[in-house]
Design a protein around this nucleic acid. Sequence first.
DNA 1: AATAAATTTAACTATTTGGTTAAATTTTGA
DNA 2: TCAAAATTTAACCAAATAGTTAAATTTATT
Lengths: 204, 204
Amino acid sequence: MEEIRKDNTEEKILEAARTVFTKKGMDGARMQEIADEAGINKALLHYYFRSKQKLFEAIFSHVFKQIFPDIRSFIQAQKPIEEKIKIFSARYMELLMLNPYLPAFLLRELQRDPEFLASVIKSQGVNPGELLTMLKAEMGSGQIKNMDPRELLINLLSLIIFPVAAGPLLQIMFFGDDPDAYNEFLTRRKETIATFILHSILVK
Amino acid sequence: MEEIRKDNTEEKILEAARTVFTKKGMDGARMQEIADEAGINKALLHYYFRSKQKLFEAIFSHVFKQIFPDIRSFIQAQKPIEEKIKIFSARYMELLMLNPYLPAFLLRELQRDPEFLASVIKSQGVNPGELLTMLKAEMGSGQIKNMDPRELLINLLSLIIFPVAAGPLLQIMFFGDDPDAYNEFLTRRKETIATFILHSILVK
DNA sequence: AATAAATTTAACTATTTGGTTAAATTTTGA
DNA sequence: TCAAAATTTAACCAAATAGTTAAATTTATT
């Protein structure tokens, strides 16, 4: 059936575009390079996606969904706050370690075109309200210290995302330019982030 | 004297280039736009800086020095660790709030060309060794909990840099797209970052 | 005033790049 | 086998852009 074939080619293109776009950004990416990476020619690339912009938007939305996944999928409401934070940071770190280019790509593009970002956020229905409410509840029940829940969540995201986004820099400055040493560090972080945060916020 | 005049124009160019490059990145920046921003024409721009690459390298090094300033200048060795961390995060936050485009610019470009980054780091003699040694000493004397000092320093940098780098995103997602609310948040952070960290690492 | 340097003007080159086109070929489903 | 869809080939166009050039003009130095 054409559909399978079409899906395959479309998949190949999207995968290739993701690779090139996340590494080089919208401005640095070349349609020819995406075609090469997908193992097709430029004519076919435009046959599937009319323009670079269209292709970019498809990639951006996709990547955005990836990096703001459905939080409910990895937070179980009934678990204690310790578990929630441990699981959240471990899962998120794993996600980023599999896609190390995503954070810096997102940060770069959202600076280039904040309006587009806003439209994606709206259309995607990203809403941290639920998470914030949950944190607020934990504070109300005295499990963790009282503070602006946004601050706590942003701290958590900072500790998870920044070390991946700044990977090349940290690797050189702190790990003797050794990718293995850096990756071991990231792996350890899956646990140490939660520890670090919990030490700070748990009411003892 | 020509020197003063030359300096003025060169300064104007560097300032303009900094503005355009940090906002749009190497790939997105246009020489014409830099010339316009500097209030000169393209011919003169090339008269001062032979190529876009040369100009970019000048900017990158400059920006890099800014964002990795001489740490000794704002950490006094004799103060207790609480003070050191408070002052460090407050000063660093102030620096970034005055230059909000720097973090995302750095992250973007270091991903585009890690080799160039490495050469800049070497030539600039950036070396966190001193800071790490200081932290290790504080741990040895029982002031703060024992941990990998790199982890502590990276946590500190994460909490400071990420919320600025992800500014446009956070502003939309957490602050109702209100720049004032977001900026107040950043201002509060000058203190809350230190509090958050100290709660986590101080030996009570 | 004379000279040299800084700056502008404006046209131009060469290259890159996104995108198109049309014809040929291959693949696929009916 | 036939028709439609997918893919390739190869040439092409138009726009953007980095960089150049040379002459004219302005500004500063002596």
